[in-house]
């Protein structure tokens, strides 16, 4: 564990806590894409099956359990909670997220490190995570006056990805035989998707304005 990896994990944890805070305390999910949240639940469910097959560390297991629990909890709130579900921008959140799942699965069947059940699902989760933010970015663009919590949520998600890239660079130079092409390329694609958002986020922060993405 290096400082970049830890910073990445903490950003990820913090982004989810922000989202849970908004949903649980303010009882609103305005501006949050259910499509993206469903994709994350699928990402974690397919990646963390190794909870049952191997042990890495207590930290690792607890984090995986938190990500699984929180992603399904958020989806539950947005779909079924009496108050929260009414604040969901259903008409704006129109991204056809099912169309992301099949291509990612086919790609995982074709490009993977080992053709085993767990390995293909793990690879699928990497490809899917890379594009899972797309419905959220589209929704942000459609929402005039993005509220602060939603903006910060996406910012910390993007920060998590950026720290992971620094972590990979650090590990490449400090560990022997550390290379993971599939993880790196999907991670780079994922981080690149945030570039545009970051630009407008920093701009609105510097001008102390509310975040507004161009239509």
């Amino acid at each position: 564990m290096n400082i970049f990896r830890l910073a990445g994990d903490m950003s990820h944890l913090f982004s989810i806590l922000l989202l849970l805070l908004k949903i649980h305390t303010i009882k609103s999910c305005a501006g949050v894409s259910l499509k993206t949240q469903e994709l994350y639940a699928l990402v974690f469910a397919t990646r963390y099956l190794d909870i049952f097959t191997g042990y890495i560390s207590l930290y690792n297991t607890l984090m995986k359990m938190f990500f699984l629990w929180s992603s399904f909890t958020i989806v539950w709130y947005m779909r079924y909670h009496n108050v929260v579900r009414r604040s969901y921008d259903k008409d704006q959140d129109t991204f056809r997220h099912y169309f992301l799942i099949l291509p990612c699965f086919i790609l995982a069947l074709l490009v993977h490190e080992k053709f085993t059940f767990l390995e293909v699902l793990w690879t699928f989760s990497l490809y899917l995570e890379a594009v899972a933010i797309l419905p959220q970015l589209v929704l942000l663009q459609r929402t005039r006056n993005v509220d602060n919590l939603t903006g910060h949520y996406v910012f910390f998600l993007g920060a998590y990805r950026s720290f992971y890239i620094l972590n990979w660079i650090y590990r490449y130079f400090t560990e022997q035989n550390y290379y993971k092409w599939i993880t790196w390329i999907s991670g780079l694609v994922q981080t690149a998707l945030y570039a545009d958002f970051f630009y407008y986020y920093v701009k609105s922060w510097r001008n102390s304005e509310r975040l507004q993405l161009p239509a």
């Binding site: 190794d50 890495i56 990500f67 080992k114 035989n177 290379y179």
Partner: peptide, 10 residues
């Protein structure tokens, strides 16, 4: 470690 099996990252 070959990079294939060690999935210590989240």
């Amino acid at each position: 470690s070959s990079g294939v099996t060690d999935k210590d990252e989240l």
